[in-house]
Nucleic acid binder design. Structure first.
Lengths: 219, 219
DNA sequence: CCTGTTAATGACTCGAAAGTCATTAACAGG
DNA sequence: CCTGTTAATGACTTTCGAGTCATTAACAGG
């Protein structure tokens, strides 16, 4: 009240923010799509979540599907860039590398927002081949290269045995995928403790990969 | 033409088959739900696939959701019954048991129709808690018991080491879950060879579980 | 063959959500 | 302060699919 001369007491209901809108709409859209899936999401709800009117969405996106694709494309985070570098540059043993890398992947998934993306890809990927393909090219394929690099490096150093795993390294991250699926479906009545799950994952991978077995677990 | 007196030349367009209908509708419904998800499935399409009119569906099911739940409930196959028995009755080593069991699980999934069910649970489970809970109780929980039994038996026999895996045995089937997810989303442009995947899975699990490592792979 | 019962049909209703557009008002530039 | 541009609005139109129901015809039993 005392400062009603500097700031307008009633800020305008409408605001023109051409730059900020698309990003806000995408944020709201991702949240709704992750929660309800593509078909069951109402643009009315997306608009409400973004604090705008439904019509405004159509100033920036031609259709619901267009928004969906734009939203997913905008989040192809270059998460794996530095992790790939990490594999090559890593000074220590394969065991140490695994013990460093899996927690990082879990953190990106469950503390960062990546699992929201994964959830959408898993539930809708089958019905949006273009998006699945994009995601495959930008994230999955690079993740696989990273794991391949890890295995190859281990074999080179004589720490990792040759096996069926050598040419199918994706199997190594399967427990993380399972965790995502579990959280999507069963978590509310049978919750997963991510840390314990991660520990079991590390344990399985180390014993499964290493030629001589890992050292004692680090606490 | 020569036998046109025994069979009616023009079979009636309508046929009254009160007994057979529900099953046929469920089959058609499952296929459509697996393909499109719940929200995007049209009952018109379910009807066409079942070779009937849309109205007929409502003679047997009260609503789309009712059909969905009936369809999923009808396929809670007691697949794990005999497999659980198999664990306890198995005469051989843990290694042989794993080598027998994982292929069976994969066969049930990918040659039997179980993966269709899994696909629906994965994509829709989050939005249908009642169904997820049912499936969890009837399939997932029993699967976990089975794996637990396998691990416990192995520990008892001195073949399996104690580890973080001992109390989180689900991690052991994670590669199978990942295979389902992969087939749902990326298979069309980067197909998985199920056999090779299974081989890598067996390899990982045996090295990950056994105290002394497995014997040479059996061809 | 005739006839009553009821399974099956598909045109219809109705509601919900996608997408449109004439109107409104925020802001910039004069 | 005035005014033109255009971002924003929300009531409106359109589309689409779930669910209804009066009508039709398959079959059974007489």
């Amino acid at each position: 009240m005392t400062e009603s001369d500097t700031a307008p007491p009633t800020p305008p209901r409408r605001r023109r923010r051409k730059e900020a809108r698309p990003g806000e709409i995408i944020d709201a859209g991702l949240a709704e799509f992750a929660e309800n899936g593509f078909a069951a999401t109402r643009l009315e709800d997306v608009a409400r979540r973004a604090g705008i009117a439904k019509g405004t969405i159509y100033r920036y996106f031609a259709s619901k599907e267009d928004l969906f694709e734009a939203a997913l494309s905008s989040r192809l985070t270059p998460f794996f860039d530095d992790v790939t570098g990490m594999v090559d540059a890593f000074p220590g043993s394969t065991e140490d590398l695994v013990r460093a890398m899996l927690p990082r992947i879990y953190a990106a998934l469950f503390e960062g927002g990546l699992h929201v993306m994964m959830r959408i890809i898993i539930t809708e990927g089958g019905r949006f081949p273009a998006i699945a393909e994009l995601y495959h090219r930008c994230v999955i394929a690079r993740g696989r290269e990273m794991i391949s690099a890890l295995v190859a490096r281990g074999v080179r150093r004589g720490e990792v045995r040759e096996s069926a795993l050598t040419d199918l390294p994706m199997v190594i991250v399967a427990p993380a995928v399972m965790t995502i699926v579990w959280k999507m479906t069963f978590d509310r009545f049978d919750p997963v403790e991510t840390e314990r799950f991660l520990a079991a994952h590390v344990d399985l991978v180390l014993h499964g990969l290493l030629a001589k077995g890992p050292g004692p677990a680090v606490e």
